[in-house]
Design a protein around this nucleic acid. Structure first.
Length: 544
RNA sequence: GGCCCCGUCGUCUAGAGGCCUAGGACACGGCCCUUUCAAGGCCGCGACACGGGUUCGAAUCCCGUCGGGGUCACCA
């Protein structure tokens, strides 16, 4: 604070749920800028919207930001809702000076004049209406609510944006008096950001481009309150990779609905049947199906997904939490997010956090909106995971499992997980390792046999697969040592003698022990499973 | 619709008048390898939105057209 040249940035989310990737990138850039210049990065919670803010959301937000490693420098989180006295004092001061005033229009009245302007093909601009002292007395007597508006000095407002460019803003005929205190007594975002940024000594404000024009309100307020103007940098928007539309929190729900409709059509089912299968009241499900404004609860989504055969990975990741649950490394997400709108120049792409800190600059931030390309993120993750030390990998996998407590792989000890990670070398997401390896951690009777796998691999060709299993069982029981190498040797020999491809032996075995057609490399899997379990599952498969 | 911003391969981008017959990454196609899924190796396809200027010379500067986005709240 004493050093005026120090960079101070901040990320100021409003707590409405898990952290969105768009916000995460804003946080990342703010963090990178501060760290690059050895400055300070702060986190502030903008909870002035009483209706939407929840304490639970604050926890989720904080958890996601911590997961990304974007540590903030303020020991205590700043909550705007706890700073009402500060804002009110300033607001009252501005009222006394005539810079702000109480406005008494009801929402209905405002809407009416807004509509009238629309009809007259005129842009709606709020104009201060003269109210006599008598009228005010009457309003107060009838308990009418009021807001406080800022009396915006009418003039052109221009500012230089570090990303968008110089000369941004609006002309005088577009400015209007905006609300700074709502009728519930809370300050609006406009007032609160300006005050807090000034008091926290914020020097660089990074935010999404949707805030570009709000900046003129903020500048006017800064001028009225005698604050310094920070450097503004408005970041381009991140769009959905598939549709090119805005990345919205509803995208996952929409995807589930779309697939539910497809499922009903192709499986010749009804909505009622789907409701029954997923344990949701029929009328509620029906409403969700036909009204895309409705969303399923987080607890209902997995049930419907299970019923229609939709997997977690089929849904677009929108929240930081989604990425964690699908098994991406946080440093990879950061790297990828950084490249959405920023480039260090040249061919440089893969960077550690430290390298990004070193290379980051606002000059490298582009102006054009960017689409979120999940395939590239997956490829980045694959590379990072292939290059990671066993320790980093294990920690990452443990973190993934923590986010997926229902996975039976949680039962494994560190030694087993490390071994498993080694077996699956070349994997892209932890989720793949988890889903393919679950059978190794199940009890024999928990293994579910996929109908398609049984049909294709065991029953086809007059039960050739099953016959292989029967014969192989004896070979396994007689095997001297139970190691991957020994199993491989004996199976190759077995296939050679019978003049069949190894695949014809390996696949039935895979189905027998895992229930499905994909697994980690089979020899090592069997070694980990153990001879007893392997033989038991072969017997069980044969009896089913 | 008004105002504002943006526009290089399918996608993210490099490019700040000659280094560009436009570079990289991901995706995609082909071949090889392979016990499943992956992974890996080699080769390949692929863009300066369009039209006018300025200039000896333009992806880079100017104008227009078209396309995309943002914003017009007592939400942030």
């Amino acid at each position: 604070m004493s050093d005026a040249s120090k960079v101070v940035t901040r990320y100021a989310p409003s707590p409405t749920g898990y952290q969105h990737v768009g916000g995460a990138r804003t946080a990342l850039f703010s963090w990178l800028l501060a760290r690059h210049f050895g400055g300070t990065y702060l986190l502030r919670i903008e909870d002035t919207d009483l209706a939407r803010s929840t304490e639970d959301a604050v926890h989720k937000l904080v958890e996601d930001l911590q997961w990304l490693g974007l540590n903030w420098d303020n020991k205590e989180l700043v909550f705007q809702s706890k700073r009402l006295d500060v804002y009110n004092k300033l607001i009252d001061g501005m009222i006394a000076k005539g810079q702000s005033y109480k406005a008494w229009e009801t929402p209905a009245e405002l809407e009416e004049s807004w509509k009238a302007a629309g009809k007259a093909k005129r842009q709606y601009v709020y104009r201060r209406t003269e109210v006599t002292a008598e009228q005010v007395k009457q309003y107060e007597a009838e308990g009418r609510a009021h807001v406080v508006r800022f009396a915006m000095p009418v003039k052109d407002y221009r500012f230089d944006d570090a990303v968008v460019g110089p000369g941004q803003g609006v002309a005088a005929d577009q400015v209007q008096d905006f609300v700074i205190r709502k009728s519930d007594g809370m300050p609006t975002f406009h007032l609160a950001v300006v005050v807090d940024d000034a008091e926290m000594g914020v020097t660089h404000v990074l935010r999404g481009q949707e805030h570009l024009l709000n900046t003129v309100n903020h500048i006017a307020l800064q001028e009225a309150l005698g604050y310094q103007r920070p450097v503004y940098a408005h970041l381009p928007v991140i769009l959905a990779g598939d549709t090119g539309a805005k990345l919205s929190k509803r995208a996952r729900d929409q995807k589930i609905r779309q697939r539910a409709h497809e499922w009903i059509r192709s499986a010749k089912k009804t909505a009622a049947e789907l409701a029954e299968m997923s344990g949701i009241a029929a009328d509620r499900l029906e409403e969700w199906l036909t009204n895309d404004k409705k969303q399923l609860d987080l607890s209902e989504q997995p049930e419907v997904m299970k019923a229609i055969g939709l997997r977690e990975h089929d849904l677009p990741e929108i929240m930081v939490r989604d990425f964690r649950k699908n098994g991406y490394l946080p440093e990879v997400l950061n790297n990828f997010l950084a490249l959405l709108g920023w480039s260090p120049g040249g061919d440089r792409e893969r960077m550690t956090m430290a390298e990004m800190v070193e290379l980051f600059s606002l000059e490298g931030v582009g102006k054009a909106n960017a689409r979120f390309n999940r395939e590239k993120l997956v490829a980045f993750n694959k590379e990072a995971v292939a290059a990671a030390t066993p320790e980093r990998l294990l920690a990452g996998f443990r973190d993934y499992l923590k986010a997926n407590p229902e996975s039976p792989v949680n039962r494994g000890d560190d030694g087993m997980l490390t071994k498993l990670l080694g077996m699956k070398a070349g994997f892209r997401l932890f989720r793949e390792v988890d889903e393919q390896a679950r059978f190794l951690f199940l009890r024999d009777d928990e293994v579910m046999y996929e109908a398609a796998a049984v049909e294709k691999v065991l029953k086809k060709n007059e039960g050739e697969g099953a016959r292989m299993l029967r014969e192989l069982k004896g070979v396994f029981e007689a095997l001297a040592e139970w190691t991957a190498g020994a199993i491989e040797g004996v199976m190759n020999e077995f296939a050679a003698v019978r003049q069949v491809k190894l695949n014809n032996v390996a696949q039935p075995l895979r189905v027998a022990v895992s229930g499905g057609m994909v697994s980690p490399p089979i020899f090592q899997s069997l070694e980990m499973l153990g001879r007893d379990a392997t033989v038991r599952r072969m017997e069980r498969a044969l009896s089913v």
